[in-house]
Structure formats: C-alpha cells, structure tokens
Computed example of a mutant assay.
Amino acid sequence: MKKNEKLWFLGIVAVLLVIFTFTDLQISKAVYNPQSGYGHFFEVFGELPGALIAVFSLAALITTGKYNVKWKAILLNIIFGVLLIIFSFMAAIMPMNYLGGIKAPVAGILAAVYAIAALWITKILSKEESKSLRQAAIIGILTFVAAIVVINIIKMFWGRLRFRSMEAPYNEFSLWFIPQGLTTNNEYMSFPSGHSANSAVIMWVTLLPTFVTSLRGKEKHLKVIAGTWIAMVMISRVIMGAHFASDVTMGATISIVSFYLISKWVKKNTSHVESESKGKVIKG
C-alpha cells in the first residue's frame, strides 16, 4: 500500500468512526433483521476464506521448508504439521457453529480434504516460486493469528453488549470508544467484530501474483474482490444484530493494518525467514 493510499484509508476509517459515534444505534435499529438470508450466509461463510488461507499458508511452510540442520527440519515440520491439522479442523468447524452444531465425522473429512488439497497445491506451486510462496505463507499465517488474538483480547476488555441482546429503550447501549469492563460473556463481546476481522484476512489474496504468474498484473482486481468480500461480511454482521457499524469498521481495520505491517516486516526480513543460505540444505 502506497503512502497516499494509507492516508486515504486511515482518513476514511477515522471519518466513519466519528459518524458511527452518533449513528451506531440508529443504523442497527434500521437494518436489524435476524431472519436475513444474506446475513445468515455470511454469518456461516464470512470467516471461511481467512481460515483456508491459514491452512494454505501452513501447508506452504511445510512444502517450501529447506534447512541446513536435520533436527531443525524434523522439528519444524512436526510443529507446522500439528498446526495444519488444528487449523484445518478450525476451517471445517467454523461454518458448523452456525449450521446446527458441530458434526465430528463431517468436520474430520472436511479437515482432511482441506489439508491434503493445500499440501498438493503448494507442492506444485513451490517447484517454481518457492521463495515467494514461503514469504506469502508467513504473512498469511501471522495475519490470521494476529486477527484472532488481538480481536479477542480487545473483546474481553471492552465488554460492549451486542444489539441483538438489547431491548427498547436500549439503555444498555454504549459508545464504541468507551470500554465497559472485563467480560467472558459472548453477548458482551460486540466490539470489535471478529467476523469482520477474520474476513479481512482475505486481503492476503493480493499476494497471489507473487507466486502465481498467471495472476501478475491483476493486483487491482484482487483488491476489489477482497474489498467487496470484506464489505459484504461487515454489512451482514450489522444486519444480524451481532455488531454495530463501528464494531465491524474497527474489526476489519485491525486485520487490514496488521496485514500490511506484517507484510512489510516479513519482506524486510526475508533473509531471516526464507531459508538458510549456507551449508547443506535439507528439504522439509
């Protein structure tokens, strides 16, 4: 993201947050519809691309691994393998939480399909663009983890009640920038939006041209696709009463900023994360 784009983005976010300070409640009252098919669809699948990016990234870390010490290769592949299994199950389970409950056999099959498909695809891609693929993989997994960790920590300390749990005259409504106290009750975890944050991990697709040659020159198109998905998820969360407009704005912003900061850091330190440059190389 260029400097002028950063300024425009942060400026727009700031303006939106000011507007939503005065209109959060009115917007939610106007659009709330828990029966919305549109809202339910993105409630179920809105976070899935982010989870699949994490699965793909972990698979890529396995298939592109090259180390000059055997024990290091074994240890890291075990760690990445375990994480691949965990995140594959996470990707399988996420939609089920909103589809009548988790079904273990189905989750297991889906997780296996996700993991095997990711390993197969990354193995093919790694033959030509190993370094770029590994760099994108590091960015992908760090962005997804950052979204989950940062968002959930803020949620617990902010304690903002969700609109769907309020009743007229909405005396429990609170402004987005005023923390309400520590909580572990999910209904008091409105700020910021986890769905919006996890959906914004899809910004990672803008890195596809770095290791998929057929997509080079398509960066702007990928940004539009990613931005559209994020916006649709954000709107859906307000419609479902799970979040206020300020919640979804902050959730998406945290992930987008994290993505660009992590990308900058990883690219700057490529020599430290890609592979060992000297000695005998052992493929992971």
Rank of each mutant, 00 (worst) to 15 (best):
T122C: 10
T122L: 00
T122K: 01
T122S: 05
T122R: 00
K123I: 08
K123T: 09
K123G: 05
I124Y: 11
I124H: 10
L125I: 13
L125G: 01
L125K: 09
L125H: 08
L125C: 14
S126R: 04
S126C: 04
S126P: 03
K127I: 10
K127T: 14
K127S: 13
E128L: 13
E128A: 14
E129F: 13
E129S: 14
S130R: 03
S130H: 04
S130Y: 09
S130M: 11
S130C: 14
K131P: 09
K131S: 15
K131G: 14
S132C: 15
S132I: 13
S132R: 15
S132K: 14
L133G: 02
L133W: 08
R134N: 09
R134H: 07
R134E: 00
Q135N: 12
Q135W: 05
A136Y: 03
A136I: 04
A136N: 00
I138A: 00
I138Y: 01
I139R: 05
G140A: 04
G140E: 07
G140M: 01
I141H: 02
I141P: 03
I141S: 02
L142G: 05
L142N: 06
V145M: 06
A146T: 13
A146V: 12
A147F: 07
A147L: 04
A147V: 03
I148V: 15
I148D: 13
V149M: 09
V149H: 05
V149N: 01
V149Q: 08
V149R: 03
V150G: 00
I151Y: 02
I151V: 15
I151T: 09
I153R: 05
I153Q: 04
I153A: 08
I153H: 05
I154S: 11
K155H: 11
M156L: 12
M156N: 11
F157K: 15
W158Q: 04
W158K: 13
G159F: 02
R160A: 03
R160D: 01
R160L: 10
L161G: 10
L161P: 02
L161V: 12
L161R: 12
R162E: 04
R162I: 01
